[in-house]
Amino acid sequence: MHLVYPAVLAALLFCVGVYGVLARRNVVLVLMSVELMLNAVNLNLVAFDAWLRDAVHAGQALTLFTVTVAAAEIGLGLAIVLLVFRTRRTADVDRLTLLGDPSEAAPEAAATEPEGRAA
């Protein structure tokens, strides 16, 4: 099998994930896109492992680890998302702008703060 096929598929999958991360508004969808990107990397790892025929199978081993780390990541990420949703009553990335310039973010923060208190 040509190495190009899995490599190009992985590259395209990764870029689709990038688009999803950058374009999606819902945090959970952003996390899904991150999973896509991780899987693109997994595909690369497996393909190059098969190509290189590594004695210790570093590619496959790392793929397993990546899967594990991804599982942990999605668990923690969802916990954070839930926490954010509880305090801010929203799961939209572009409404979580407290890191921005205060004068721009102030009205939004002022509007959401009492709700967060109420929670």
Binding site: V18, V21, L22, A23, V93, D94, L96, T97, L98, L99, G100, D101, S103, E104, A105
Partner: peptide
Amino acid sequence: VRRAQTGNAQSYLSALL
């Protein structure tokens, strides 16, 4: 410059990538 500091992480990330 302040206009760029919207606090939207996605736009930051877009610029980074």
